[in-house]
Simulated assay, not measured.
Amino acid sequence: MDVKYEVLPDHDIELCRDLCNELMVYQKSKASITPELFDAMSFETRLIPSVQKASHNYIVIVKDGDEIVGYVYSNISPKEVYSNEFATFFDMHSVKKEMVGCLSQFYIKKEYRQYGVGSTLFNMSMNWLREHEEVEDYFIYVSNGNDDALEFYQRKGFSVSHDILGGFITVLRSKKVI
């Protein structure tokens, strides 16, 4: 295993297409609360719009040789982005600053888990988020059934804030970047 981490410019997000779609299938397979909501979620409906709405994006892919085996996507966005026709992700009044940081998507192929790849991607994202002084609230959204991800983020210092959409998503929050 010869993994390398590569930060992508926004215009290269197409490289994440397959893994983003794989993430949606994975999340649906874990979900016990309205898994059918994932049927409408894909690279086109999740990653592209998020990148377009964000003020700053940070995308890192993990390669083993030429194969992309994981990625993380984090962003800095106006807080209003998180209140839309799908859901209101947090109480807007609880966020004092105009911008929020979010670790938005995170996926590693199964055979590459447990080797520290996730911790490396998480740390890279947190370091990037820390660079943005206009942010003091950081969020991670975990789909129901993905207990491994939930526990991972809690071990990294994030706390469960609340659930939305009847438990479909658990919102984790930190007032500081770990």
Score class of each variant (00 low, 15 high):
72 V>K: 02
62 V>A: 07
18 D>Y: 08
147 D>L: 06
155 R>L: 03
141 Y>N: 11
94 S>G: 02
158 F>W: 13
12 D>R: 14
138 Y>T: 01
37 L>S: 13
167 G>Y: 10
167 G>C: 06
89 F>E: 08
138 Y>R: 00
15 L>T: 07
103 L>Q: 06
88 T>V: 12
10 D>F: 03
50 S>P: 00
170 T>Q: 03
48 I>P: 01
177 V>L: 06
28 K>E: 12
87 A>R: 10
32 S>W: 01
66 D>S: 14
110 K>G: 14
156 K>W: 02
83 S>C: 09
121 L>N: 07
154 Q>M: 15
139 F>D: 04
167 G>Q: 03
80 E>D: 08
127 N>F: 01
126 M>E: 15
65 G>N: 11
132 H>D: 02
42 S>V: 09
42 S>T: 11
23 L>W: 04
89 F>P: 06
142 V>G: 07
26 Y>A: 04
133 E>I: 15
175 K>G: 12
63 K>Q: 03
32 S>H: 13
5 Y>N: 08
24 M>D: 10
152 F>S: 12
83 S>T: 13
102 C>F: 00
24 M>S: 13
68 I>G: 10
73 Y>G: 04
42 S>D: 03
124 M>T: 02
93 H>I: 07
77 S>V: 08
116 G>Y: 08
83 S>E: 13
22 E>Y: 08
129 L>P: 10
149 A>V: 11
159 S>A: 04
53 K>P: 00
48 I>G: 01
92 M>S: 13
142 V>C: 10
1 M>D: 07
127 N>V: 12
175 K>M: 05
107 Y>D: 07
115 Y>P: 00
149 A>Q: 03
152 F>C: 09
54 A>L: 05
61 I>H: 00
61 I>V: 12
73 Y>N: 07
50 S>Y: 03
146 N>E: 12
69 V>F: 07
16 C>Y: 07
148 D>F: 09
170 T>L: 02
168 F>H: 13
5 Y>F: 15
3 V>G: 07
141 Y>T: 09
24 M>H: 13
83 S>I: 04
87 A>Y: 06
170 T>F: 03
169 I>C: 07
164 I>H: 09
84 N>S: 11
161 S>M: 11
43 F>H: 09
141 Y>C: 03
22 E>P: 01
82 Y>K: 08
110 K>A: 12
135 V>R: 05
75 N>P: 00
5 Y>T: 05
168 F>P: 00
133 E>V: 09
51 V>P: 02
68 I>L: 09
138 Y>F: 15
94 S>R: 10
108 I>P: 06
19 L>S: 02
51 V>I: 12
146 N>Q: 00
6 E>K: 11
3 V>H: 10
11 H>V: 06
35 P>T: 15
1 M>P: 05
124 M>P: 01
82 Y>V: 05
149 A>I: 11
154 Q>I: 10
55 S>Q: 12
100 V>P: 07
50 S>M: 04
65 G>H: 03
21 N>F: 02
108 I>C: 04
40 A>C: 02
44 E>C: 04
34 T>Y: 08
52 Q>H: 08
99 M>N: 13
117 V>G: 06
176 K>Q: 13
78 P>V: 09
110 K>M: 02
42 S>E: 14
41 M>T: 02
23 L>R: 02
